[in-house]
Nucleic acid binder design. Sequence first.
DNA 1: TCTGGGGTCCTAGGACCC
DNA 2: TCTGGGGTCCTAGGACCC
Length: 415
Amino acid sequence: MEATATILHADLDAFYASVEQMLDPSLRGRAIAVGGGVVLAASYEAKAFGVHGGMPGRRARELCPHLIFVPGNFRHYQRLGDAAIGILGDYTPLVERISIDEAFADVAGCLHLFGSPAEIAQTVRTRVRRELGLPISIGIARTKHLAKIASQVAKPDGLLLVDPADELEFLHDLPVEVIWGVGPATKRRLAEAGVTKVGQLAVMPGQSLQKLLGHAVGEKLGALAWNRDPRAIVTDHRARSVGAQSALGRRPFEERVFRPTLRHLADRIGSRMRSKALSGRTVTVRVRFADLRSITRAVTLPAPVSATAILAEVAEEQARSVRADFPNEATISLLGISVSHLERQPAMQLEFSLGLDDEAVRPGTSRGAARWQADRALDAVRQRFGWEAIGYGSVVLETSRSVPDAFRELAEKDL
DNA sequence: TCTGGGGTCCTAGGACCC
DNA sequence: TCTGGGGTCCTAGGACCC
C-alpha cells in the first residue's frame, strides 16, 4: 500500500506586503514595498519588476519607478501571522511553525474528522482569505521537503498536492535550488559540475556528491533528490542561541565606538534571555570590517550567564583582542554578539561562582547578585513602560537605522 | 555595485583524555 | 622513539534560511 500525502506546508504570500494591501484598499493591485532603506517585503506587482526582499530601497526604485514604499505595521504582522497559523491548528495539533508566516502541519490523524488533506488545505485557505483577508499557498506531500517545494510552486495563492505516485516525476524536473539547503554557493558548485536539475543531482554517484559538497551536505542532497526526508513534525523548538547585531555604517574601530555598542547589544540579549529564563556559556563576538570581511571570537565560560554587565564585559574583552590582532583594520561596519550553549535556568546563582564578581559588595552579596537584581529591576520597568523607557546611561547610539526598531522586535519575537 | 537582523547546521583543526 | 585509535570539547569560518 502506498503512503498518503498528509504533510501540509502553508506559506502566506508576500506576507508583509499583502497585509498592507489588505489594510489599505488603495494599495491593492499596486507595486508596493514595505520598508525604506531596505526592502523588507515586496508585493507581487513589485516582484514583477524584479524587486525583492533584502534589496536596497534605492535599487528597488530604479527597477520600479512607481514603487510605493510603506512603513511596516509590525504589530499587525505578528497578530495576523499568529491567526493564520492558528487556523491551521484548528485541524491538527501537529503544527510546526518555522517563521512568522510559514508552518508545517501533519493531518494524518484527523482525516476522519475533516476530510482529505486537500480538502483540509482548501478549507484553511478559504478561512484565511475570508477571516483575515490574506492569500496563503499550501503544498501537500508525503514529506516536509516536498510539501515545502509544492507550496513554492503553488504560489501565488495556490494549492498543490504531490501524489506519492508522481513524486519523482515532479521533483526531478525542477531546478536544484528548490532544494532546501541549496543556496548560491552550492548552486554554483553544482552548475560547475554540469548539474542544474534535481534529476541530474539524483543520478550523481553519492561519492562524487560528497566530494563536491562535503559529507553532510552531499548526503542530505542525495537523499532529498529522491524525496527521502525522514524529518517529522516538531511542535516545540528550543533555541540554541540568542544574538543581536548592529550595522554601523563605517565607524572607527575604537573603544569609544565598540564599548557602547556592545553594551547595548548585551542589554538586548540579556533581557531576552532573562525573560525566557535562559542563560548561556559561550559568548561569540562578530566584528565586520569596512570591506565586509568578518571575524568571530568565541569564549566558553565555566558557567552560564545572562547578566547584561557580564555579557558586555566578556564581549568587550573579545573586541579588544580582535583590535589587537588586526592593527591595520581601522574601520568597522558591524558588531554582533551571540550567546550559545544555552541552559534553561535562571543564571543568578551561577554567576556568583564565576570569579567574574570577586568584589563582594557586602557580606552574603556579590557583585554578580547586585547586577542580576539591577537587570531584573530594569526588565520590570521596561515591561511596564516599554524598551526605550530606561537603559544603560552610556548607551547613546547615533547609528543611522535602516531597519525600524519594531522590525527588530519582531525578529526577536519567539515563534 | 556592497543589504539588515535573527537564527541553524556543518567543517576542520587543535587540545586533551583514555 | 614516530606509532595507534576513539571520543569530546572548543574555536573560527562558511553556507543557508526566513
